[in-house]
């Protein structure tokens, strides 16, 4: 009896379990699809940015603060050549090689046909025109903290820069990192606009420094170590990291840094202005291009950055 009826019962159980598994798989795929879907900037915020009267001259300050030229101008470019955002630089990483795009205002090779909404979505949500995810090698995970005014001014400024017709191959990434949809998962885990540090008081200079370092300056993208999935180890904010391009290290720039802890705020500001350390060694590596940008800022901005760096938690 038991043996005669056992088989159909077992079969039914298998069928039930199979059904549950398929349902779970579908549900899982649904969750995956929902989690990884690109999420654009809200319509209200896009409208607010559109409503701003943009000032391209003011946008130049944002352009230098944002370090656009460090990656998008040609390597070792100097003088006005740093304003030609022709792209082409190859950034090596554990995930493969990223090829920096042309973001000059050229209508075909660059971003000349982009709307302000598309630009805002790239800067604040990491979404390309057409709706796919952008790789966080473009530091939107920092730019997300930028103000509406700065976004509008920067877009207006980029429109005034020289156009370049240079075209480049796609990124050369390893599977599965070549599948952009997965970046939705990366964003779900690591992408938000929360402050990186809690400032004790509302000092205006410190707030300006925090804005520049955590937002447009995107200092943490190189100076903070990352986990295996490429997310910042936020408890190690600005504590230094391996050089992604090979040998050497990107230094710790917190007050606990062995090499920087003896620097005063004035020393930091002078370094950003001149490229000289307190013992007159000079800036090197990728920081050379960054320092050239910082030198273009008003001295109050460099002093604000220095003041902020003296107050972040020592690591």
């Amino acid at each position: 009896m038991a043996a005669a009826n056992g088989r159909p019962v077992a079969k039914r159980r298998v069928r039930l379990l199979g059904g549950l598994a398929v349902a779970a798989l579908i549900a899982g795929l649904g969750v995956f699809w929902a989690v990884t879907a690109p999420r654009a900037v809200s319509a209200e915020r896009l409208a607010a940015i559109e409503a701003i009267e943009a000032d391209p001259a003011r946008g130049e300050r944002v352009f230098w603060a944002g370090g656009c030229a460090s990656c998008h101008a040609e390597k070792e470019a100097s003088g006005d050549d740093r304003k030609r955002l022709s792209g082409g630089l190859r950034l090596t990483s554990d995930f493969g090689t990223f090829v920096v795009p042309n973001i000059s205002p050229h209508p075909d090779a660059g971003i000349g046909q982009w709307t302000l909404d598309q630009f805002s979505n790239a800067m604040l949500a990491g979404i390309a025109p057409g709706g796919s995810h952008l790789y966080p090698s473009f530091p939107y995970a920092s730019y997300v903290r930028m103000s509406d005014q700065d976004i509008a001014d920067l877009f207006a400024h980029i429109k005034t820069l020289p156009a370049s017709d240079a075209t480049h191959p796609d990124h050369e990434l390893k599977f599965p990192f070549s599948w952009r949809r997965l970046l939705g998962g990366w964003k779900f885990l690591f992408f938000d606009d929360a402050p990186r540090t809690e400032l004790a008081d509302g000092d205006a200079q410190l707030q300006r420094g925090q804005y520049l370092v955590e937002g447009p300056g995107h200092c943490g993208e190189c100076h903070t170590p990352r986990n295996l999935l490429g997310g910042l180890k936020t408890d190690q904010w600005l504590a230094g990291a391996p050089n992604p391009e090979g040998e050497g290290r990107v230094p710790n720039i917190t007050p606990g840094s062995p090499s920087l802890k003896s620097w005063s705020a004035a020393d930091i500001a002078y370094y950003l202005e001149s490229g000289f350390t307190p013992d007159f060694d000079s800036v090197g590596g990728s920081m050379v291009a960054v320092q050239k940008n910082m030198a273009e800022l008003p001295s109050a901005d460099r002093e604000a950055i220095a003041a902020y760096l003296k107050t972040v938690p020592a690591r």
Binding site: S78, E247, G284, G285
Partner: peptide, 17 residues
Amino acid sequence: LTKNCGACHETYRIKKS
């Protein structure tokens, strides 16, 4: 004159710490 410092260190000097 001192633009030369960074121009060379950009490519040819690696900081280890």
